[in-house]
Design a protein around this nucleic acid. Structure first.
Length: 783
DNA sequence: GGAGGCCTCGGAAGG
DNA sequence: CGAGGCCTCC
């Protein structure tokens, strides 16, 4: 009698589950029950006596980790809590909290998110007097990021002639230097960015044999999900950890690798085979998700890629319906077509809204879909917007928390030192930065000694800075004595942040206030129940749970980026990019915008590698569908304000026609269901009337806008023959007659305040009364 | 200090 | 076209 957890698995799934020792690679086709195998494999390991404390399971998203943990605890109960399961970043962040002091970081180090990192880079570029147009923060950040993902630190970078030459040829020779400054600045701030979490973990394992030994013994069994998405650094860490026991299992599908553009390295799969000659490979090829037609269509497409592992995905499911191909005359009409088709399918197939997904290549495509759905009254939900923790008001309060836990955190400090307003302006902060550079220390350490350090900041401002320091100090004292919620409330109140947002009664302001309250509620829950947003690996590394303090909360959420965790049970159509759809499935899927230059993206046409990644993306899109797949394209589309004509995507032709129901030849038909609505002329553009005009005629004449905008200012400048010279406005008195460049002559009717903050009310016969700030206003005194 | 005009630029996105 | 950044002007 086989144990419970092994029932219901097919032979290859079972083989993969039972093989718990030695290096294992599981190549899992789309819909082949990959998560199921991982879950059952872990349960089986525990069943065989493996201690969950010794099992490390790494995923890419919090969502995947949550899901897996849930399924394991359902099957095997409480013991699942002791598993080390989480994203690469969260697991190694936990490790670093303990071990980072070895390389000079405080264990309370801050984790910089992408915004923090880019802000810092931007500032460094400015400080270095470099051109921000050439050294765009995002670009510099990506370059540094991919260096670290390949285990290059700034010295390695600067010593590498190839990298340095690349930069020189690209006209950006200073990136190596920026890397160095950025890294040192992060270090002084006690901060690591996402890539440092991996890089520093690797360094610890490489340079400290005792640590390597410790963690090799701790992690006797290692599993890696979505292996095709790992980058080099991640692979090297895993390889080091597994070197002693070699109980390592990686699961992935090369055909679904769609993140090469951000450093994922398919090469890792090939390296894995050569690094572990003893490797046992299992292939999960039976698809349980889709119809035969859909599976075959997907196979047709992926067969066009040269670079792939051999496997043949098949299914026992029924034949199902043909892949439907639809054509619209414009992007807006494509929206109508999809919306009408959903209404029809719902009736014909007895489906509800939540059975449908609309997938697209770029976010910009959602608009025409949304408009059409709204018009037909079909509820929908867009996935992948800005997450809760990325909102400004949330980041502001979190910055106070960060500063309390780690006052050296430069980005947090700059964010809140003058928010809410406490009259510590940009100039003063810049002076603090200069002093910090000079003394080779953090901004905070300068602030602490603001009256002893030479900064050139006025006594009044220094007093305000001292107040600020006292306030943060008071928070720091509470850190050890108060629970997270009490301290958080205290901070929200005495920082003035809560009051500031409460005062704003605009709809956005109200929502900001509510968001802050929501965050505080979350902290309350964390404090009361010890509920954490992350599936925290309980272990000896975790802090004592007696007092749930704010620093622990901060650590828990630092790596949470996927907003709401609770899936709402709303009956809505799902809209998302194909990337966001990975791992999901829907009975009915629409893949829209199947056009050349859009999908495949025009930016991917330069190389075979990039084109093949687009094709894998299409493969992912197709394999999301369970019962019915619909592809659509438009023959014209607005792009950046211009109407362009489009050709159908080459990917469409890659599907054997015998699997396709081509509806494009039967001219875009009005819906049988609601004939009028399709042509009701709602669309403000791209409706049938406008479409009758040839695109070339309609598109705006080239350069029109430019001409318009350049004539205006230069024409105006020419007319002002002599430059307007202003007098010293400090001497202006009530009753004087003055001349203003734009408003002409006028009379000063009132004067308030003391120069330079004085404000004059001037009456201009042609323009009425104007309030002018005298330090800015350019006025000529006439009388 | 902050609102509004002007210019620029546009890919997908996890932690 | 539209969002976001920067500069200007009050």
């Amino acid at each position: 009698m086989e144990p419970n957890h092994l029932s219901g698995l097919n032979q290859s799934q079972l083989d993969a589950v039972l093989c718990v020792e030695g290096p294992v690679m599981i190549i899992a086709g789309a819909g082949s029950g990959k998560t199921r195998v991982l879950v059952h494999r872990i349960i089986h390991m525990m069943y065989q006596g493996a201690d969950p404390f010794n099992i490390l399971a790494l995923t890419f998203t919090n969502k995947a980790a949550r899901e897996m943990k849930k399924r394991i605890s359902q099957a095997s109960g409480d013991e699942a809590r002791n598993l080390w399961m989480g994203t690469f970043h969260s697991v190694f962040a936990k490790l670093l909290r303990v071990e980072a002091p070895r390389i000079g970081y405080p264990s309370s180090f801050t984790i910089y998110d992408t915004d923090d990192a880019k802000n810092l880079i931007k500032e460094i570029v400015k400080e270095q007097g470099l051109d921000e147009k050439i050294y765009k923060p995002g670009l510099v950040y990506n370059r540094i990021s991919s260096a670290k993902n390949n285990l290059f630190n700034w010295q390695d970078y600067q010593d590498n002639t190839e990298l340095m030459n690349d930069d020189r040829h690209a006209g950006k020779p200073m990136i190596g230097t920026l890397f160095e400054i950025y890294q040192k600045r992060c270090f002084t701030s006690g901060a690591m960015d996402f890539d440092d979490l991996l890089y520093n973990t690797f360094v610890l394992l490489r340079d400290f044999p005792d640590l390597l030994h410790k963690y090799q013994h701790k992690f006797k069994f290692i599993l890696v999900d979505e292996f095709q998405d790992t980058n080099y650094a991640q692979y090297m860490i895993v390889k080091k950890l597994a070197a002693l026991n070699e109980n390592i299992c990686v699961v992935g599908d090369d055909a679904q690798s769609i993140y090469a553009f951000r450093g994922a390295n398919i090469q890792n799969i090939l390296s894995f085979e050569s690094d572990y000659p003893e490797l046992k490979t299992f292939k999960l090829e039976q698809n349980y998700r889709s119809t035969k037609t859909i599976v075959e269509a997907a196979n047709c497409v992926i067969a066009n890629n040269r670079n792939q592992l051999k496997k043949s995905v098949w299914t026992d499911n029924q034949e199902g319906e043909l892949v439907r191909l639809m054509k619209a005359l414009s992007d807006n009409e494509e929206g109508n077509l999809v919306a009408n088709t959903i209404i029809e399918d719902k009736a014909n197939m007895r489906l509800t809204n939540q059975d449908f997904a609309i997938l697209y290549r770029t976010n910009a495509q959602s608009r025409s879909m949304e408009e059409a759905l709204r018009r037909k009254g079909i509820p929908y939900r867009i996935y992948g917007g800005i997450s809760f923790y990325a909102r400004k008001e949330i980041k502001d309060l979190l910055a106070y928390f960060r500063l309390t836990v780690n006052p050296d955190d430069e980005e947090a400090l700059k964010r809140v030192i003058n928010y809410p307003k406490r009259e510590i302006g940009k100039t003063s902060v810049e002076k603090v930065i200069v002093a910090a550079q000079r003394e080779n220390t953090s901004l905070w350490k300068i602030l602490e000694r603001i009256n002893e350090v030479e900064t050139g900041i006025s006594a009044a401002t220094r007093a305000r800075i001292a107040d600020f320091v006292v306030m943060i100090n008071s928070f720091q004292v509470m850190l050890k004595t108060h629970n997270a919620f009490d301290l958080a409330s205290q901070i929200a109140t005495s920082s003035g942040l809560l009051r500031e947002l409460y005062a704003d009664k605009s709809p956005e302001g109200v929502s900001h206030y509510e968001n802050l309250q929501e965050l505080l509620n979350g902290i309350k829950e964390f404090t009361d129940k010890g509920v954490t947003a992350l599936p925290a690996p309980s272990s000896e590394l975790e802090q004592s749970p007696e007092l749930r303090t704010l620093d622990v909360f901060l650590q828990d959420i630092a790596l949470v980026t996927d907003g709401e965790t609770d899936e709402k049970n709303e009956d809505t159509v799902s809209l998302m990019t194909i990337h966001a759809a990975k791992g999901l499935e829907f009975p009915c899927v629409f893949v829209v915008g199947m056009e050349e230059n859009l999908f495949p993206s025009q930016m991917a046409l330069q190389s075979r590698e990039e084109l093949e990644e687009e094709r894998r993306l299409f493969y992912v899109a197709i394999t999301r569908a369970e019962r019915k797949l619909t592809l659509s394209y438009a023959s014209t589309r607005y792009r950046w304000g211009n109407l362009i004509s489009c050709e159908p995507s080459r990917f469409i032709d890659e599907i054997d026609p015998k699997y396709v129901n081509d509806q494009t030849t039967a001219v875009a038909r009005p819906s049988m269901f609601n004939p009028k609505s399709n042509w009701s002329g709602f669309g403000n553009r791209g409706n049938n009337v406008k479409e009758s005009t040839p695109p070339a005629y309609k598109s705006r004449p080239e350069g029109f806008k430019k001409l318009g905008s350049t004539t205006n200012p230069s024409g105006g400048a020419v007319q002002t023959s002599t430059p307007f010279e202003a007098d010293d406005c400090a001497t202006i008195q009530e009753g004087m007659e003055v001349e203003h460049q734009k408003f002409g002559t006028g009379k000063v009717v009132r004067l308030e305040g003391v120069y330079p903050d004085s404000r004059a009310t001037v009456h201009f016969p042609a323009h009425g009364n104007k309030q002018l700030l005298l330090k800015f206003a350019k006025l000529r005194i006439l009388k």
